[in-house]
Amino acid sequence: MVGPLEKILGGLLLAIPAVLFLRMFLHGLQYSLGLKGLLQSGWTTTHWEAVFRSGVLLESMALSAVTALIVTMLSLVGAIVLIGTRFCYGAGKSLEAALLLALSTPAIVMAMLTRLWLEPGGLIARMLFWTGGISSPAEFPVLINDPYSLGLILCGVFCSLPFLALFFLRVWEANALHRYVSTAVLLGASPWQAVWRIALPMLWNRSRTLLVLIFLWNFSAWEGPLLVGQQSPRMISVLIADSTGEFSLADRPRSFTYSTTYFVLAAAGLAVLTRRGRHHVCRD
């Protein structure tokens, strides 16, 4: 029931991202195979072999995946706690205002704030100095650019949690979950029990896809890892961005090997997600 003009216009406009994305993938693939570039060597798989032999890409992927997973899980727990607080202690408009304020903070500002609070010369360290907790920044624990990515994880959680919590509030409202949990409370459950046993499974069912998206966003995150992440291994976006400007010109194709792999994985992840969803729909 869509008119031909609409189809043509929509198709043409869809072609813009289609072409840009397709060409960026092809450019990277050709470059990584020695078929493009000022210093191209002609068809070769040496860059791919070198990348997989060095293990830098795999380490980076693993770090990105683990960090994203931890951030997603902590955000989920945090969002549940906030929802529980909302229900058990009656937090209302102020909680929503707090979430909207946090949601309005861009990732780059969140990364900057993480540094400002947690670095050895940062706000917490200064407060500790004035209260006699430490006498110099060197005594403050390392939480920024640290080997365990603590600062990065915290930054990711502060970016993702408000989004998830607001989504939960919306689902709560749309599905009138308060009726179920109130009934449970009236029947003798404690408010936290009601949230845990009644609301949580319902929220979980509706937020699974969003959780996957939050995982993927954190997997690809750049600003946070750039400012507060560790130097080695690097998160995948930082690795790709850094490696395009590496010092040896001959190694430039390596960065396109990274980006091509990244695009393939992203597309594969998306294909699996959409396919799984369709199977799910079919079964229903």
Partner: peptide, 18 residues
């Protein structure tokens, strides 16, 4: 598919034009 054809032609034209 006529819709697919539109998209296909548009993509090819843009690939060429770029």
């Amino acid at each position: 598919s006529p819709c697919g054809l539109v998209l296909r032609v548009a993509i090819l034209l843009m690939l060429h034009s770029l």
